[in-house]
Design a protein around this nucleic acid. Sequence first.
DNA 1: TGGTGCTACGTTGACGTTAACATTCTGCGT
DNA 2: ACGCAGAATGTTAACGTCAACGTAGCACCA
Lengths: 346, 346
Amino acid sequence: MVSNRGSRRRSRGPSIEDVAGLAGVSAQTVSRVANEAGNVRPATRERVLRAMDRLGYTPNRAARALRNGAFGSIGLIARTFARTGEALTTQSVVEAAEAEGYSVTLLAVREPEAGGWRHAVQRLSHQAVDGLIIIRAEETTPESFLLPSGMPVSVSDSRFIGYYPDVGADQVQGTRDAVEYLLGLGHATVHHLAGPPDSEPATTRAASWHRTLEGAGISPPPAWRGDWSARSGHEVGREIVADDSVTAVYVANDDMAFGLLRAAHEVGRRVPEELSVVGFDDIELSEFSEPPLTTVRQDFRRAGHELVRLLLQQVTEPGSVGYDERVLLPTTLVVRGSTAPPPPPR
Amino acid sequence: MVSNRGSRRRSRGPSIEDVAGLAGVSAQTVSRVANEAGNVRPATRERVLRAMDRLGYTPNRAARALRNGAFGSIGLIARTFARTGEALTTQSVVEAAEAEGYSVTLLAVREPEAGGWRHAVQRLSHQAVDGLIIIRAEETTPESFLLPSGMPVSVSDSRFIGYYPDVGADQVQGTRDAVEYLLGLGHATVHHLAGPPDSEPATTRAASWHRTLEGAGISPPPAWRGDWSARSGHEVGREIVADDSVTAVYVANDDMAFGLLRAAHEVGRRVPEELSVVGFDDIELSEFSEPPLTTVRQDFRRAGHELVRLLLQQVTEPGSVGYDERVLLPTTLVVRGSTAPPPPPR
DNA sequence: TGGTGCTACGTTGACGTTAACATTCTGCGT
DNA sequence: ACGCAGAATGTTAACGTCAACGTAGCACCA
């Protein structure tokens, strides 16, 4: 609750009263002009507009927010904004929010522990925010923190499904498409390089992979694990490519798939002739890897839009969105050059 | 200036008066507790804290902002937040701002034309923001828009150098390192795949490439142009790899370099044996391309921190930062597998 | 000519917080 | 017991905006 920001005080700009004085009208009339309410004579409006222009007047947002009880701002919480998935979602959240006249305030969670998230929410609830979007809340559970009651929330790819309205790619279907495609190519089984165990998308993808194999009558091999980063994909990728029995790998995201591709190149294991690789996400660079990556595309742009829509619906009409509402976005398998039938058994 | 957001009115939470009532003290005392001012008896403080807890009280930011004339928030303007460079900078700006108790509000500029930027600034100046960070303001000039006077600003990689305090990688040095390294490998000349002409970093890198070649007594060949995207790198890359006389290319960023690498693979032009490629940025995936990309690393994290530092210094001490202040961040040439001596001439 | 109804504009007050000033309380010395 | 310094707490007012209500002015009709 610290806030001794000392002398942080900007020189205040012109206020509505200054404009009113210059235009020779009351503040209320200026307000009417500023808000495009009717009932202002064109001549008066002109005079006020000129006065605004001359003084460089812009309405004070804090005063408006105080008056209206709303801030025109959405809080966006994530662990980082730098990774591809988060960056793309952030961008589309900003676009959608802007279209509705809202701005977006960012808050990063530093420490992975639950304490970090609680702290983040604490801080954000001190922010001027009408609602919260939480993306990739990987390391915590809904019980571990309390939001200010009545605060609208929508979440994505998190463990909060069932607690708050949720938006996410249909990972179950996407995974099934990928695994079945590989099986259809003739691979005896499909291995999996999973994301971190505390991540909801990672566990969902792993579970769907597991079930798809079982559904095909195949006993799933143990999965490898990375942390979403290309570096981790490269590290465990070295083990994977060293195992000649592995002919097909479904990797939980494209970054790690890049690492695996690299590991394969390093030992001369040819992709796709000797090893098929499928990623998830379809980031911009996936089309340009060597070989171009077959991957499950998810629509980050739409996810951001849906998150905002779901959130603002709660803001406008409290109670209009069920806490268990889910938006499942379809995925598409994009077949490129990293997949092929398995090599003939020796 | 539209703002008829109709019924956007949240049920207001508990106010300082509610807490004061419950704790049996005055609002001022609650305020003192909330702001950790001294002069409150421990017993009283306890009582107030309990009351806050019970009511779930959090100070109203709008009221604070109105009272204090400051918002505790930094505006971040960019064309997009999804591209690697912007995403990394955004992340580090958020980190640095948070460390100082500020939050970050995003604003994207949709249309590339000057009008878009002006609109953005208009909107942001309506936001509750103590200062502005502008990154990659590629398509406009400082004259084309007016900020609210006295608004602190810091900028990066833009045409605003000399108008506002600026932070950026030392692209001149970085480029020189790259080009001289290729020359030192024995290449007769170095070609350049540049960024879009309206971008400051693009023109700076191109100019430095030009001068470095001239300094070595080499007449620079015409440069190719992309738009920073991997796709554009791939498109013009097809022309580049079709030209046998080209043995070394300095590419203005890593994304485009990925596209070029792909084009080379497609026609079987071997990298680095037949063609050397150097990128700029050192994004996470550069280490994992085939071959791993030699590139000029720039420190996005530090750039974000410096942007915030420069901005907050202006907020705290108006006039303490010159409008022509520049922070030049050193770059590092990271040599990996995409560069080698030229093939012997046929 | 006097009312009637409408439009343009003004006045008041409240949103929640806190600086500045005012008051009350506490403990201590005499 | 009394007075006094200093600490603890209370009161007032103002930050800028706008909804609600109030009033003045005008056009129109009987």
